[in-house]
């Protein structure tokens, strides 16, 4: 659906995007996660045609999005991180105005506007002036606005900043529902926990580069695979130590009581083999496994590495 290749963007001397590449599949609810200043907004602005990339490509449904801006605009719905409203327009007029900027006018369009507002839980608010709506309602109105031209891809930049928990929850419900109905959604945030449960896959960005991408399980296991192996045994420390030392693939071995911790340079199969041999040689193994980090820790580690370099 969406494919980004080697995107580079400099603001003067400051490099905001440093060869970012990522892919979002059809029908996904994609979480685009990174700390403040990572380059999320910059990437999104390039995708929506608000900013020129210095180099790199963006493909939408196989179409070169940067060359064909007009088609791109028809396919993308965008909710920016900060958005304003016109103070003396009513909610329905606000919707109709944006419909007309996509060349949509007429009775059916007005009906569609009302439908969308209803979908966003704004029924009966059509005649209210936009600036009299609460922040959460404005956000949902802006979301309704972004859907007016039936986009294939919906992009939301930090939609929950400035919302209270209840509005956030409502927003999540709406987004899940939209995704279920077939809209591909890309949503950016600097708070991982907020997206983790709702997204089908995520991309972690820092310093203008994509560090990890995939489903949450994939990312967790991809990171955990390089974590050290932890082995707990029953009383046989010396024997175990001797056994592990004799294996060339076992490195940086550390002992803490009955717990052995080491990194293993072999494949998964060799890892299983190791356990098998341990048991065969009479070591009573209590547990054998990798230290598992949760997503939050992984996110912190990944983005911290970026900071240090």
């Amino acid at each position: 659906m969406l494919k980004i290749e080697n995107l580079v963007k400099n603001y003067g001397k400051c490099r905001a995007l440093n060869g970012l590449s990522m892919e979002v599949g059809e029908g996904e609810l994609f979480g685009f996660i990174g700390p403040n200043g990572a380059g999320k907004t910059t990437t999104i602005k390039i995708m929506t045609g608000l900013l020129r990339a210095d180099s790199g490509n963006v493909y939408l449904d196989g179409m070169d999005a940067l060359k064909d801006a007009d088609k791109l605009k028809q396919k993308i719905g965008y909710v920016p991180d900060f958005f304003g409203v016109y103070d003396n327009l009513k909610a329905i007029e606000y919707m109709e105005f944006y419909a007309s900027t996509y060349g949509l006018v007429g009775r059916e369009v007005t009906e569609r506007c009302y439908e969308l507002m209803e979908l966003m839980g704004l029924e009966g608010r059509g005649e209210v002036y936009v600036d009299e709506l609460s922040r959460g309602m404005q956000q949902r109105l802006c979301l309704a606005r972004a859907l007016i031209h039936k986009p294939d891809l919906l992009i939301l930049d930090e939609p929950s900043s400035g919302l209270d928990p209840r509005s956030r929850f409502e927003m999540k419900t709406i987004l899940k529902e939209l995704c279920r109905k077939g809209t591909t959604i890309l949503i950016s945030s600097h708070i991982l926990s907020e997206l983790a449960e709702m997204c089908s896959s995520i991309g972690i960005i820092n310093k203008g580069e994509l560090l990890q991408q995939g489903s949450i399980e994939e990312i967790v296991s991809a990171v955990n695979i390089s974590n050290p192996i932890l082995v707990r045994v029953c009383d046989d420390q010396k024997k175990t130590l001797h056994f592990l030392r004799s294996n060339a693939m076992v490195q940086s071995l550390a002992i803490d009581g009955q717990e052995f911790q080491f990194t293993f340079a072999g494949s998964a199969k060799e890892e299983a083999e190791l356990l098998h041999k341990m048991i065969d040689s009479g070591i009573r193994v209590l547990s054998f496994g990798r230290k598992r980090d949760n997503l939050e820790t992984i996110f912190m580690q990944l983005t911290k590495e970026g900071e240090e370099s």
Binding site: T48, G49, L50, D70, K73, Q74, I76, Y78, P80, F82, F83, G84, V85, Y86, Y98, T101, Y102, G103, R145, H149
Partner: peptide, 14 residues
């Protein structure tokens, strides 16, 4: 620009 509505206009088909 001050109202932060320009981006929405620019991403439309106008």
């Amino acid at each position: 620009k001050e109202r932060r509505t320009l981006d929405l206009l620019l991403t439309s088909r106008m």
